[in-house]
Design a protein around this nucleic acid. Sequence first.
DNA 1: TATCATGGTCACCGAGTGGTGACAAGCTGG
DNA 2: CCAGCTTGTCACCACTCGGTGACCATGATA
Lengths: 203, 203
Amino acid sequence: MARDKEETKARILAAVGKLLAEAGFKGLGVNAIAREAGVDKVLIYRYFEGLPLLLQCFAKEGDYWPTVDELVGDESVAKAETLADWMAYLLSRFSDNLQGRPMTQEILRWELLEGNALTRELADVRDKFDLDSLKFLEEKQSFPPDKDIPAISAVLVAGVVYLMLRTKSSSTFMGIDFSSPAGWQRIQAALDSIVQLTVDGDN
Amino acid sequence: MARDKEETKARILAAVGKLLAEAGFKGLGVNAIAREAGVDKVLIYRYFEGLPLLLQCFAKEGDYWPTVDELVGDESVAKAETLADWMAYLLSRFSDNLQGRPMTQEILRWELLEGNALTRELADVRDKFDLDSLKFLEEKQSFPPDKDIPAISAVLVAGVVYLMLRTKSSSTFMGIDFSSPAGWQRIQAALDSIVQLTVDGDN
DNA sequence: TATCATGGTCACCGAGTGGTGACAAGCTGG
DNA sequence: CCAGCTTGTCACCACTCGGTGACCATGATA
C-alpha cells in the first residue's frame, strides 16, 4: 500500500467512525474495521495494540459532545431572560444538536448496555458536559431553593435522549408519530410548557 | 432424557427467560439456550423451527407488561383526585413496577437497538399499554384542551425509562447519584412537581 | 552493494456461531 | 414379536471471530 504509517492509522480511525455511524457498535470488531479501512487487521494490533486501545484512541480524537458555549451560541440571540427561558433554550438546542450527531447517538446506545472501558471514559466526558450545563444555568440565575433543578433537568434530558434513540427504529411512542416533524414539535412544545410551568412558578 | 416433548419445550422457554434476565439479549443464541436448558439444540429447530419463532413464542407466553388495572391496583387506595394526581400516581407505580421486571428492562434495551421482528411485536404490546394508560387517565378526567397530555406523558415516561436503563450500568447522571434510594427519591419528587405544576395549572 | 529496520501481506490457529443429517433409545399399535 | 413413530444424542458442516507468526517489499544507511 501507501507505506505511510500515519495515513494508515488515520484510515483505521476513520473506518471506526464510519462503521460506528452506519452500522452501530454491534459488529464493530477488528475484522470489520480492517475490512472497511482496506487494511490488514494485523496493523490494528501493531499500531493500536488491539481493539480496546484503538477505541480509546478514537474516543480521544473526536468531539462527540458539544461544549455548553457551542450549544448556546451567540447569547445575544437567545433572548432568554428567566431561568426557565434558559433551560428551555438549552434543552431545545441540545435536542437539535444531538439529532445531528449520529455517532453520539450510537455512543449513547452503547453506554446503555455495555459497561465497557471505552463507554465509561466517554460517559465521563458526557457527565462533565451535563454538570457544565447546570453550572451555566446557575450562573444565569441561581436555583430556587425549593426546587430540585438538577433532578428536573435529569428527567427532561433523559426523556429527550430516550425519545431520540427510540424513534430511530420505531417511529411511534405513546401514540405520537415521530416520523414527521409534527411529532417532535409536540415534544418540543411539551418541554417548553413543562419547563416554564415547573421552573418559573412561584410555589 | 425425560422423553416429554411439552416439558422439553417448557425448559427451552424457561432457559430463554433466564438467559435474557441474567445475561441480556447479547449472546442469546441457539447454542447458549440449549446449553442452559440442558437440551440438544437440534430440538430447538424441531420444536420451534429456529430461533426467531422461539423468541416469538416466548414473547407471546410471558407477561412483560403490567396491565393498567394491575398498575393502579385498588383504586380506593390511590386517593387521587385530580388528573395530575392520577398521572403522578401512575408514573410512580409504573416506575416501581418496571424496577421489579429485569426481563422487561432487557426487552426495552433490546428494542432500542435492534429492529428485530420480535422486538417489533413486543413494542406493539407496549404501545397498547401506553395508549391504555392514556385512555384510563382520560376517563378519570378529560384532558384540558390547551395542554398536550400525551406529549407530556411521553417525555416523562421516556425519562423514567431512560434513567432506569441507564442507572443499571453507570450509577450517576447529571450529578445525581442513583446508587442510593435518595437519588430515585429526588427523581420521584421531581416527577411529582412537574406533573402537578404542568398538568394541574390553569394557564 | 549488503544490512536492517519499517510497513504490509498472507496463512493459519482455536473457539464459538447457526444449522443439518444420521442414528440410537423408547413407546405404541398391529 | 416386529414395524413405525416420537424423542433425544452425536458428529459434522461452513462461517466468523479475535489473535499471532512467518514472510515479503521497500527504502535508508553503512
